[in-house]
Each structure stands twice: as structure tokens, then as C-alpha cells.
């Protein structure tokens, strides 16, 4: 009897899972990190969604985390946009990580209303696979708009926010807190549609890991 019940429960759980996967996920894009793919439903970033990233500091690998996905998009037919980046996206570094630079559009804005506008336009456009935006102040309502734009364009919106934003609720599909420790980057899932929250994975994606591992090449012959 109890065996029978266990079987029914498991069947029910499977039904729930598959139903959820089919209805909520419009497809996924692999993150490029096996550890992270393992905990995300559909084994990757959900397409047609806004993903919030809240790094505790600059320089912990918060951008390297996305490099495999961005490289993948840029190699296929889709564009990637950097909207209002805090510093200069360094062309040699992006090229080294496999990003096709002719598929990467940098958009500078002077006001947060323009950042959100440009973010929405690029997400809504089918030609863009992913858009990254740095915007310190975003309201709930605005995230919901972005979410709808991403759904209609089947694109991924990566929104970089301050660590304080983790305390507020947000309609974003996925919310990740990023911090560094000796092992590398620690990704904490604060919220994830279709999966349990509170999971934590360590990813060794900080550039310095590679940089320190490989001996620095001396600059090519001086001109």
C-alpha cells in the first residue's frame, strides 16, 4: 500500500515538473557552466525572461559568468547589447572570450529612463539574443514591462542591480546574488521560476584563476 502511494506521489511530482517545464519555459540557453546548468530548470538561462544579477563588488567575475552565453549568441545570428555599462567594455578581452564583436552593440545613456527604454527596445527585437543593462534604480512595474518585452522577443535580459536590491521583491524570473570567495564566484539563487530558491553553486570563472594558472605571455614583438 505504501509502495503504491510512493509510486503515485512520484508520478504526480513528475507530472507537475513536466507540466511546469512545458508551460513556463520558452526554451533555454546553456549557461556554459555545468554546475549552474545542473540547478537551473531546462539546464540553462530561460529565454524570454529577465534575470537579475546582484554582485557584491565589481571584479568578482560577475560579467565572466555570462561570457559563454554571450559568445554563443554572437556566433549564431543574434545580437547582444550592453546598455549603460559602468566602464569601457574592453574589446580585446571580449574577443578572447569568443564574443564576435560585430554582434555586440554598446549603448550609452545618460538617464535611467533612457536605459530602461533602450533595454526594452532591444529585448523586444528578435534580432537580439540577450541584452545586459546596468541600472541602479528599477521599479517593480518596470521589471514587469521588461519581462513582457523579453517574452515577446524570446530574448534574455540580464539586469545588474545593487546588492541592496536583493532585499526587495521583484517580478524577475531569476534572481541571483553573486559574491566571491577563494574558490571563485558563488552564485546564490534567490529566486528561480520553476525551481527551488536558496541553492548555491561555486563557479571558478574569475579571470584571475585562469590568468594566475597560465603563465603570462610576454607581449608580441614590439612594433
Amino acid at each position: 500500500m505504501s509502495a503504491h502511494r510512493a509510486q503515485t506521489l512520484e508520478q504526480l511530482a513528475r507530472l507537475c515538473r513536466t507540466g511546469r517545464d512545458a508551460s513556463l519555459l520558452a526554451g533555454t540557453a546553456p549557461t556554459g557552466w555545468a554546475e549552474l546548468d545542473a540547478i537551473l530548470p531546462g539546464a540553462g538561462w530561460p529565454l524570454g525572461a529577465v534575470i537579475e544579477l546582484m554582485p557584491t563588488a565589481t571584479g568578482i567575475g560577475e560579467l565572466s559568468l555570462l561570457m559563454p552565453t554571450l559568445a554563443q549568441f554572437s556566433r549564431s545570428e543574434r545580437y547582444v547589447a550592453f546598455i549603460s555599462p559602468p566602464y569601457v567594455p574592453f574589446a580585446p578581452a571580449l574577443a578572447q572570450r569568443g564574443v564576435q564583436l560585430h554582434r555586440l552593440l554598446v549603448i550609452e545613456t545618460s538617464a535611467s529612463v533612457d536605459t530602461l527604454w533602450a533595454f526594452e527596445q532591444t529585448l523586444r527585437c528578435n534580432a537580439f539574443g540577450a541584452a545586459l543593462a546596468w541600472c541602479p534604480f528599477v521599479k517593480d512595474r518596470e521589471v514587469r514591462r521588461l519581462q513582457l518585452a523579453a517574452e515577446s522577443g524570446r530574448s534574455i535580459g540580464f539586469l545588474y542591480r545593487t546588492p541592496a536590491a536583493a532585499l526587495e521583491p521583484s517580478p524577475a524570473a531569476v534572481r541571483l546574488r553573486l559574491q566571491a570567495n577563494d574558490k571563485g564566484l558563488i552564485v546564490e539563487v534567490l529566486k528561480c521560476r520553476g525551481a527551488r530558491s536558496g541553492m548555491t553553486v561555486a563557479i571558478s570563472c574569475a579571470d584571475s584563476e585562469r590568468a594566475s594558472g597560465s603563465s603570462l605571455r610576454s607581449p608580441a614583438s614590439s612594433p
Binding site: T58, V88, F90, A95, Q96, Q100, A220
Partner: peptide, 24 residues
């Protein structure tokens, strides 16, 4: 070693640089 460009030119020849950081 980088510049802005107002047209999307596919760079065929990749330049070899030592490892570089994403933000400058």
C-alpha cells in the same frame, strides 16, 4: 588597443593579446 566604431565590421583577423580584463 580598442576603438568605437559606427558600423559593424566583422574583423576577420583576430589580434593576439595577453589575457585582458572585461572592464577598462
Amino acid at each position: 588597443c580598442w576603438r568605437k566604431s559606427h558600423a559593424a565590421d566583422a574583423q576577420r583577423a583576430t589580434l593576439a593579446f595577453p589575457e585582458r580584463p572585461l572592464w577598462l
